[in-house]
Protein backbone atom coordinates (compact mmCIF):
# COMPACT_ATOMS: atom_id res chain seq x y z
CA UNK A 1 0.00 0.00 0.00
CA UNK A 2 1.27 3.44 -0.93
CA UNK A 3 1.17 6.24 1.64
CA UNK A 4 -0.82 9.24 0.34
CA UNK A 5 1.56 12.04 -0.69
CA UNK A 6 1.41 14.93 1.74
CA UNK A 7 1.23 18.30 0.12
CA UNK A 8 1.36 21.93 1.23
CA UNK A 9 -1.88 22.45 -0.62
CA UNK A 10 -5.16 20.66 -1.26
CA UNK A 11 -8.16 19.87 0.87
CA UNK A 12 -7.56 16.98 3.23
CA UNK A 13 -9.93 15.71 5.86
CA UNK A 14 -13.45 16.80 6.66
CA UNK A 15 -14.69 20.33 6.65
CA UNK A 16 -15.24 21.63 10.20
CA UNK A 17 -18.88 21.74 11.29
CA UNK A 18 -20.30 25.21 11.42
CA UNK A 19 -23.03 26.01 13.89
CA UNK A 20 -25.84 28.01 12.27
CA UNK A 21 -26.90 30.68 14.70
CA UNK A 22 -26.90 34.48 14.82
CA UNK A 23 -25.13 35.80 17.86
CA UNK A 24 -26.47 38.97 19.52
CA UNK A 25 -29.55 38.66 17.39
CA UNK A 26 -31.58 41.47 18.93
CA UNK A 27 -28.73 43.93 18.87
CA UNK A 28 -27.99 43.19 15.23
CA UNK A 29 -31.62 43.47 14.15
CA UNK A 30 -32.00 46.74 16.05
CA UNK A 31 -28.86 48.01 14.38
CA UNK A 32 -30.11 47.10 10.92
CA UNK A 33 -33.44 48.80 11.54
CA UNK A 34 -31.74 51.93 12.87
CA UNK A 35 -29.49 51.98 9.81
CA UNK A 36 -32.39 51.67 7.36
CA UNK A 37 -34.34 54.40 9.16
CA UNK A 38 -31.34 56.72 9.06
CA UNK A 39 -30.46 56.31 5.42
CA UNK A 40 -34.07 56.76 4.31
CA UNK A 41 -34.35 59.95 6.38
CA UNK A 42 -34.38 62.34 3.40
CA UNK A 43 -37.28 60.40 1.84
CA UNK A 44 -39.71 60.26 4.74
CA UNK A 45 -38.66 63.57 6.19
CA UNK A 46 -40.05 65.43 3.15
CA UNK A 47 -43.32 63.46 2.96
CA UNK A 48 -46.27 65.80 2.65
CA UNK A 49 -44.21 68.94 2.32
CA UNK A 50 -44.37 70.87 -0.91
CA UNK A 51 -41.61 72.96 -2.39
CA UNK A 52 -42.46 75.75 -4.85
CA UNK A 53 -41.39 74.82 -8.38
CA UNK A 54 -38.29 76.55 -9.72
CA UNK A 55 -39.03 79.66 -11.74
CA UNK A 56 -36.18 80.53 -14.09
CA UNK A 57 -36.50 84.07 -15.42
CA UNK A 58 -35.85 85.02 -19.04
CA UNK A 59 -36.11 88.79 -18.72
CA UNK A 60 -32.49 89.82 -19.21
CA UNK A 61 -31.77 92.97 -21.25
CA UNK A 62 -30.29 90.99 -24.14
CA UNK A 63 -33.30 88.68 -24.39
CA UNK A 64 -35.73 91.62 -24.04
CA UNK A 65 -34.08 93.39 -26.93
CA UNK A 66 -34.60 90.46 -29.30
CA UNK A 67 -37.56 90.69 -31.64
CA UNK A 68 -40.38 88.38 -30.49
CA UNK A 69 -39.96 85.86 -33.31
CA UNK A 70 -36.18 85.40 -32.78
CA UNK A 71 -36.51 85.06 -29.05
CA UNK A 72 -35.40 81.46 -28.73
CA UNK A 73 -32.44 79.51 -27.42
CA UNK A 74 -29.89 77.87 -29.70
CA UNK A 75 -31.94 74.68 -29.74
CA UNK A 76 -35.52 73.76 -28.91
CA UNK A 77 -36.62 74.82 -25.42
CA UNK A 78 -37.45 71.28 -24.30
CA UNK A 79 -34.16 69.98 -25.54
CA UNK A 80 -32.25 72.66 -23.70
CA UNK A 81 -34.21 71.99 -20.56
CA UNK A 82 -33.46 68.26 -20.63
CA UNK A 83 -30.01 68.06 -22.13
CA UNK A 84 -28.15 71.34 -21.57
CA UNK A 85 -25.77 69.58 -19.21
CA UNK A 86 -24.84 66.93 -21.78
CA UNK A 87 -24.48 69.65 -24.36
CA UNK A 88 -22.19 71.75 -22.19
CA UNK A 89 -20.12 68.75 -21.19
CA UNK A 90 -19.75 67.84 -24.83
CA UNK A 91 -18.90 71.39 -25.84
CA UNK A 92 -16.22 71.58 -23.19
CA UNK A 93 -14.54 68.39 -24.35
CA UNK A 94 -14.85 69.20 -28.03
CA UNK A 95 -13.52 72.73 -27.58
CA UNK A 96 -10.58 71.92 -25.35
CA UNK A 97 -9.59 68.51 -26.63
CA UNK A 98 -10.47 68.64 -30.33
CA UNK A 99 -10.40 72.35 -31.06
CA UNK A 100 -13.98 72.27 -32.39
CA UNK A 101 -15.25 75.59 -31.24
CA UNK A 102 -18.09 76.32 -33.64
CA UNK A 103 -21.56 74.88 -33.07
CA UNK A 104 -24.12 74.65 -35.84
CA UNK A 105 -27.64 74.47 -34.46
CA UNK A 106 -30.48 72.51 -36.09
CA UNK A 107 -31.70 75.74 -37.61
CA UNK A 108 -28.30 76.15 -39.29
CA UNK A 109 -27.20 79.11 -37.21
CA UNK A 110 -23.57 79.13 -36.04
CA UNK A 111 -22.54 79.77 -32.45
CA UNK A 112 -19.26 79.83 -30.55
CA UNK A 113 -19.33 76.80 -28.28
CA UNK A 114 -18.77 78.57 -24.98
CA UNK A 115 -20.74 78.72 -21.76
CA UNK A 116 -19.18 82.00 -20.79
CA UNK A 117 -19.19 83.76 -24.10
CA UNK A 118 -22.39 82.42 -25.66
CA UNK A 119 -24.87 81.09 -23.06
CA UNK A 120 -24.25 83.73 -20.43
CA UNK A 121 -24.43 86.45 -23.06
CA UNK A 122 -28.23 86.12 -23.06
CA UNK A 123 -28.70 84.42 -19.71
CA UNK A 124 -26.77 87.04 -17.80
CA UNK A 125 -29.00 86.58 -14.74
CA UNK A 126 -27.37 83.60 -13.09
CA UNK A 127 -29.21 83.92 -9.79
CA UNK A 128 -32.65 84.16 -11.42
CA UNK A 129 -31.95 81.62 -14.12
CA UNK A 130 -29.31 78.96 -13.41
CA UNK A 131 -29.53 79.04 -9.63
CA UNK A 132 -33.32 78.62 -9.73
CA UNK A 133 -32.84 74.91 -10.29
CA UNK A 134 -29.22 74.38 -9.49
CA UNK A 135 -29.34 75.84 -6.03
CA UNK A 136 -32.79 74.46 -5.28
CA UNK A 137 -32.00 70.86 -6.12
CA UNK A 138 -28.35 70.87 -5.16
CA UNK A 139 -27.92 73.56 -2.54
CA UNK A 140 -24.31 72.59 -1.87
CA UNK A 141 -23.30 72.39 -5.53
CA UNK A 142 -20.34 74.61 -6.21
CA UNK A 143 -21.31 75.37 -9.78
CA UNK A 144 -20.44 78.82 -10.96
CA UNK A 145 -20.07 80.14 -14.47
CA UNK A 146 -16.34 80.54 -14.46
Amino acid sequence: MKEPVKSEFGTVGEKPKVEKKIYNRNLILAGIIAFVVLITFPIWNLQGKSVPPPDPKLDTPVIQKMPEKDRKCIEDKNYMRNYHMQMLDNWRNQVVRNGNRQYTSLSGKKYTASLQNTCLECHSNKSQFCDQCHLKCWPRASWRPN
Binding site: M87, V95, N98, G99, N100, Y103
Partner: peptide, 17 residues
Protein backbone atom coordinates in the same frame (compact mmCIF):
# COMPACT_ATOMS: atom_id res chain seq x y z
CA UNK B 1 -35.53 66.35 -31.60
CA UNK B 2 -31.77 66.14 -31.33
CA UNK B 3 -30.38 63.27 -29.23
CA UNK B 4 -27.41 64.05 -26.98
CA UNK B 5 -25.06 61.76 -28.90
CA UNK B 6 -25.54 63.62 -32.17
CA UNK B 7 -23.83 66.71 -30.86
CA UNK B 8 -20.25 65.83 -31.78
CA UNK B 9 -21.07 66.04 -35.46
CA UNK B 10 -22.47 69.52 -35.02
CA UNK B 11 -19.20 71.00 -33.74
CA UNK B 12 -16.43 72.04 -36.10
CA UNK B 13 -13.34 74.26 -36.03
CA UNK B 14 -13.82 77.92 -36.79
CA UNK B 15 -12.84 78.39 -40.47
CA UNK B 16 -11.00 81.61 -39.57
CA UNK B 17 -8.64 79.75 -37.22
Amino acid sequence: MLAPGELEAKLAPNPKA
